[in-house]
């Protein structure tokens, strides 16, 4: 009996020691696993070394950050199915809500960090061929006869849903809140889409490399990347006068981070995104920064666009998702009419 207690004690002490040595970085190194969506690849490739350097300078601990990128919905499902993400930096709040539903983090996660937990924002813009031969300047131009639009499939990709909602919201504002008119516009718009790729990157390649279509609906940062990648002499970015404010949220996945003993570092990592240093990196990667000072400095890098949020126009993501993208939802209905 006594022997058993002794053994149990020994075990507890051993476990406690190993936990402590993990948590406080006794080995002077920690590993964070950041599960993110597709277009942030270049952004986090710049952010991670900056954070590691800053953290090392302050605490003397080495941080290694592993990245994973993919479609936002797919990444969210992978975390649900057991991928040990310490932080999730996804395209839609809905994809992190799905994690909250599985009790991996608290339901009020979005209130834990400033600005709805979205340290950077973006919007949907148009990419056109050099010289803008079809004269595309605003949303209604997309449904002129003979214009072909490349956009990803809203049923298959998170980024594509932003483009769809941007079109819907813009039409809604143009027609003073007339839902029927918005629906008619979006219906016409997707009749001008000959190819539905299953992700934002796929659409960019289809448009830029395979010469398909006249206009690409793209994330602002993807548009700049496409210009850099496929030749600024071949394409132009056209910012519509009105578009959607995309707020890609970030969150610590509490259960995983606690299990890995890195919750504190994970929180620091996300808070780092709001510092002027990180905001500068964010702006240089063509995401719109939150920090007023950095935003002011980069004012000329971003077109003046009137931005509306999903909350304002659609009453939040959950509602937009159920109305527009669920099976038999509005997108299915307007597509079936083809």
């Amino acid at each position: 009996m006594l022997k058993n207690v002794f053994l149990a004690l020994l075990l507890v002490i051993g476990v406690a020691f190993s936990l402590v040595s993990c948590g406080s970085g006794g080995g002077k190194s920690v590993t964070l696993y950041n599960v993110s969506y597709d277009p942030t690849r270049e952004l986090y490739a710049d952010i991670n070394p900056a954070f590691a350097a800053a953290y090392k300078a302050r605490t003397g601990i080495d941080v290694t950050i592993q990245q994973s990128h993919g479609g936002s919905g797919k990444q969210s499902r992978q975390i649900l199915e057991g991928a040990s993400a310490d932080v999730a930096t996804l395209a839609l709040a809905a994809d992190i809500d799905a994690l909250a539903k599985a009790k991996l983090l608290p339901a009020d996660w979005q209130k834990r960090l400033p600005d709805n937990s979205a340290p950077y924002t973006s919007t949907i813009v148009f990419v056109v061929r050099r010289g803008n031969p079809k004269g595309i300047h605003d949303w209604p131009d997309l449904i002129k006869p003979g214009v072909s639009v490349i956009a990803p499939d809203p049923k298959a990709s998170g980024g594509a849903r932003w483009a769809y909602l941007a079109a819907w919201g813009a039409a809604l504002k143009a027609h003073h809140g007339d839902e029927g008119a918005a629906r008619a516009f979006v219906t016409a718009l997707y009749q001008h889409v000959p190819i539905l790729d299953s992700g934002a990157r796929g659409s960019t390649v289809t448009f830029a490399q395979r010469d398909q279509g006249d206009v690409l609906l793209a994330w602002e940062n993807e548009a700049y990347l496409a210009l850099k990648e496929f030749g600024a002499d071949k394409f132009e970015i056209v910012a519509p006068p009105i578009s959607i404010l995309a707020e890609p949220p970030v969150a610590v996945v509490d259960t995983n981070a606690e299990h890995d003993g890195v919750k504190h570092v994970a929180e620091e990592y996300l808070r780092f995104l709001y510092t002027p240093e990180a905001q500068e990196i964010i702006a240089r990667n063509h995401y719109r920064p939150r920090d007023p000072g950095v935003a002011k400095a980069h004012e000329k890098d971003f077109a003046q666009v009137e931005l509306f949020t999903v909350d304002d126009v659609f009453g939040g993501w959950a509602k937009a998702q159920a109305t527009h993208f669920a099976d038999g939802g509005v997108f299915d209905q307007i597509y079936r009419k083809r």
Binding site: D153, K155, A156, I195, L196, S198, R336, R338
Partner: peptide, 17 residues
């Protein structure tokens, strides 16, 4: 081109679900 009813295969529909 993954257009439902025109060029979409069943496997793609499963992916969308």
């Amino acid at each position: 081109s993954n257009i439902p009813g025109k060029t979409e295969i069943t496997a793609h529909m499963i992916m969308k679900k």
